[in-house]
Amino acid sequence: MYELDKSKILNVMRTNAGEVLKKIHDAKGKNQDKTKEMNRFLDELHSKVFEILSKEVDKSQLPECAFLVYYCWIIVSLECRNYLWNYESMDLSRRSGELWESLVKLCWTFPVKKNVKRFNAPSFEDVQKQIKKKFVKKLKDRGIPDDLVSEIYNDYDKIWSLLGESINLNSDELFETFDELDGEIFESETKHEKVIIDFKGSYGSNEKGNKERLLTVARVYDMLNHYELTDKPYRCMLAVRTVEDSGHNYLRQLENSGLWSVERGNEVYDMIHKYTGFNILKVIKKHDLSIVNDLDENTAKYMKSKRTSKQDKSFADHYLTWW
């Protein structure tokens, strides 16, 4: 069994990035252009390192290998970006959320369990037609005269128009679980269902508009369940790494709607373990993963010294403490 080593992976990435990063840093140009060039190089570096290690590890180690390599890439990516130009609160808030989401989604790219598979979101146009057709059938099955059915449907159609012409039913992660897949039968603790997950690095007071979008999306999936227009029930789930005090009210409203379930903090990792079989918390403990502690000295010092204006927490505590 190949021994994955966090320190060696970090050392390889830092060594390869060092010389290139200095050239990018010293060159003339806008910071944004330099960052794009740096990201292109780091993406290629990640691909090469993972390609090499994936050939070394046992097949059963591939999920852990993918997770660890990407984690190390996150560390080096944060160091490089902060070296080019220091992170400010808004940039780091957005970036930390993107990186955390990409890291945990690897568990569905390389699942330990084999009865889980991603699916594509249905189009709103198709869904709308199916639900309307089912509604008309329900009216006719009750013996309502055709002229009255048309009258009721016209009013019903006007209500649908309030939703607009198109709603994006896609989300951060969509997957389904199976009792049987490709001729193989599975025994699983999870239900036979389709799950829609929306990942959030943090949830705060600026989420009111997003709350309304989430409710609209979930209502559409709920109607598909109600009219039995799916081969297995849909379930909508919000996975939140950090909940700010100001965000609790919006989360409660989502939970109380009965349309979304909410997983917070380590509950998210337990949920991922349940569905994909990949135990993130075990891997974190095994490799002693801590973003702030794994950053180089200069980057860690900066992240500990800078503070958020609203929460009055260090960048290290607020943005880079993920477990």
Rank of each mutant, 00 (worst) to 15 (best):
residue 103 L to T: 05
residue 108 W to T: 03
residue 125 E to G: 11
residue 102 S to L: 02
residue 106 L to G: 00
residue 126 D to C: 11
residue 101 E to H: 12
residue 103 L to Y: 14
residue 124 F to M: 09
residue 121 A to N: 10
residue 107 C to S: 12
residue 110 F to Q: 00
residue 116 V to T: 10
residue 103 L to D: 05
residue 125 E to M: 12
residue 107 C to N: 06
residue 122 P to F: 04
residue 106 L to K: 09
residue 123 S to W: 02
residue 119 F to N: 12
residue 124 F to E: 03
residue 102 S to V: 02
residue 116 V to G: 01
residue 108 W to H: 07
residue 114 K to T: 05
residue 106 L to V: 02
residue 115 N to H: 11
residue 117 K to F: 12
residue 123 S to E: 09
residue 107 C to Q: 01
residue 99 L to K: 03
residue 111 P to A: 09
residue 120 N to V: 13
residue 102 S to Y: 05
residue 105 K to D: 04
residue 110 F to R: 00
residue 112 V to S: 07
residue 102 S to F: 04
residue 112 V to N: 09
residue 121 A to F: 10
residue 106 L to C: 08
residue 113 K to M: 08
residue 101 E to C: 05
residue 113 K to G: 04
residue 103 L to F: 15
residue 125 E to V: 13
residue 103 L to E: 05
residue 128 Q to E: 15
residue 121 A to C: 12
residue 120 N to K: 15
residue 122 P to A: 06
residue 113 K to F: 08
residue 106 L to Y: 04
residue 105 K to H: 11
residue 99 L to Q: 05
residue 108 W to G: 01
residue 115 N to A: 08
residue 123 S to H: 03
residue 110 F to S: 01
residue 117 K to M: 14
residue 102 S to D: 14
residue 104 V to L: 10
residue 105 K to G: 07
residue 102 S to K: 09
residue 118 R to D: 10
residue 107 C to Y: 00
residue 118 R to Y: 13
residue 112 V to F: 03
residue 121 A to Q: 11
residue 104 V to A: 03
residue 124 F to D: 09
residue 111 P to W: 05
residue 118 R to K: 15
residue 117 K to G: 11
residue 122 P to C: 10
residue 122 P to D: 08
residue 105 K to N: 13
residue 100 W to Q: 04
residue 100 W to E: 07
residue 120 N to L: 14
residue 102 S to R: 10
residue 127 V to D: 02
residue 109 T to F: 10
residue 118 R to A: 13
residue 111 P to K: 06
residue 112 V to C: 05
residue 116 V to L: 06
residue 110 F to C: 03
residue 112 V to I: 08
residue 105 K to F: 11
residue 124 F to T: 08
residue 121 A to P: 07
residue 113 K to C: 07
residue 100 W to P: 05
residue 117 K to R: 15
residue 112 V to T: 13
residue 105 K to Q: 12
residue 115 N to M: 00
residue 122 P to S: 03
residue 127 V to T: 13
residue 114 K to S: 14
residue 100 W to V: 06
residue 105 K to L: 04
residue 105 K to W: 09
residue 125 E to S: 14
residue 104 V to D: 01
residue 99 L to M: 13
residue 116 V to Q: 02
